[in-house]
Design a protein around this nucleic acid. Sequence first.
DNA 1: TTGTAAGCGTTATCAC
DNA 2: GTGATAACGCTTACAA
Lengths: 339, 339
Amino acid sequence: MAKRQVTIVDIAKKLNISASTVSRALKNHPDISKETIERVKECAAKMNYIPNEMALNLRMKRTNVIGVIVPEIVHYFFSSIVQGIEEVASEEGFNVMLFRSEESYEKELKITDSLISARVAGVLASLSKETDIYDHYQRILDNDIQLVFYDRICIGIITDRVVVDDYAGALTAVEYLISTGCKRIAFYSSPTHLEISKNRRNGYLDALRKHKLPVDQELMFVCDTREAAMELTPKVLAMDNPPDAFFAINDHTATGILYAVKQTGLRVPEDISICGFSGGDLALACDPMLTTVEQHGYEVGKTAAKLLIDKINGVTLGQFTNRIIKTKLMVRGTTKAAP
Amino acid sequence: MAKRQVTIVDIAKKLNISASTVSRALKNHPDISKETIERVKECAAKMNYIPNEMALNLRMKRTNVIGVIVPEIVHYFFSSIVQGIEEVASEEGFNVMLFRSEESYEKELKITDSLISARVAGVLASLSKETDIYDHYQRILDNDIQLVFYDRICIGIITDRVVVDDYAGALTAVEYLISTGCKRIAFYSSPTHLEISKNRRNGYLDALRKHKLPVDQELMFVCDTREAAMELTPKVLAMDNPPDAFFAINDHTATGILYAVKQTGLRVPEDISICGFSGGDLALACDPMLTTVEQHGYEVGKTAAKLLIDKINGVTLGQFTNRIIKTKLMVRGTTKAAP
DNA sequence: TTGTAAGCGTTATCAC
DNA sequence: GTGATAACGCTTACAA
């Protein structure tokens, strides 16, 4: 207890040499004799010396910390992303500082201040649903901190970006539904101002147009939770001209639809097809198992972290990359077989 | 770009006063005149001054960083815990540094070194499945870093601990199964050396004994993934004297059981009852919805973070608390109604 | 009421 | 080869 942490000076004293020699020996500086290096390293090990990163960072005017802003933590897609980030970061010798914005702009503001205060080397951020002012992100850049957006990107700020191919994912999914004979496909989406809503909606619309199916505004809803879907779906099924398929913005919503459809006595997929968007274990727990668009959050995280670390290391100064992570349609039991 | 971050000295120069005055003014030191305080604060705001935490921490010999070691990130229980931790930490002005041990002892060793190197104020840790040597945690304490274990605790080291009431959770769940008429209850568990396996097994056994049901070693299996459960369960159901209920160590395993049982044509819960352990959305996606023991990971995280921060702030020096978070049986569709 | 100077642990730059 | 010194940005005795 109360044992002061051992410093380079403690080692120096014990060995009757100077602190700078110890410092150099520890880093295998060519000027230092093999013998001294040996002695210093042995002594350091014996004394359980662990370098003080704070001092080092202050001296070097840099950090090995990456700040990550995530809207939600308990969330398959985002936690996959964090896992990808953590993996790359730890491989490259960086530590990850995690912040949750709770989908709140206010919280985001506080977080960016903490991030600058902590003098992190770089930031990986996904916008909260509320955010439509971006000054705080500009301030990050103004403070010489590298920045990469992932998933919910910010168009107003010039940085690297990593996004999921929402458009293609939606297009492929809806085309698949059409190929299995579905003709009236409902679309449950998140609030329409979000990029993911827009992009997936465009994919949905283009799929319909491409296959000469009519676009019916009455089949497009804002509904993106399980609870909302359980409430809305019976009403939709009771329409005069009800849909024969549902395309949902996420798997939670899709499970709500599935539940409601089965409640009404309709069969899935014979009467009604359902396709979600997310991936993960939730889709496997359903009965039948849910057809869904896998988003590869892990890849998003890894890619974003790599781009950021390249920036930090100065490898890609002045370049701004847009990386798009491909989605994959996982065909399972809530859709019919393609002919 | 390349704009150096503004320091206390920059403000001092601009105002023709000394750095120490600026420092004091920023902290509302009583000695400083209202007027100076005003001027300094105004100037600081104008120049977008943000204090350098690294320098501050070095000077004060402390940090506002909490290190968190988590075996897995993409995992309902653990991500709930992280969320609880993040929430308390950000309320109390601490930042969270997240590390994933990947259930590996080697990785855990590296992480503890990074943690000491980063001079975090405290560590929240849950052991990896592999870990059975604890020297690296002792080193954390030896370096004057506070430590609290959560969930997968370490008995050999004296610290605060937060655990889930595995024993009571299992006891309650199995008693409920018995109350609905189940007589032969199979138990699918994780490797037996883990504390959670032991505790839940004891709950399971005591429930059987309490209700004078025979204990059958043939009904106890090591099986803790969905895939393993899908493979094992048909064999178990084909036994001469098959079980009429399954109690699984987690919900993933339970969903595998559910799938396999339905495949064989047996009805859930009429023929076979199933109960999981975890909580979260997975249980709701099942059909019927899964009866499960909710673990309240969010509470675990909040409690652990509070204990740690109290330790860091010196409020509870020398005390060692064991906190037990209650579980809750969520009765749903995979079990029969109690009479 | 404010300024001076030392020091937190480290490394880079000069000396010797 | 190795040592002294300054500096990174900040706080705090101690002076003034």
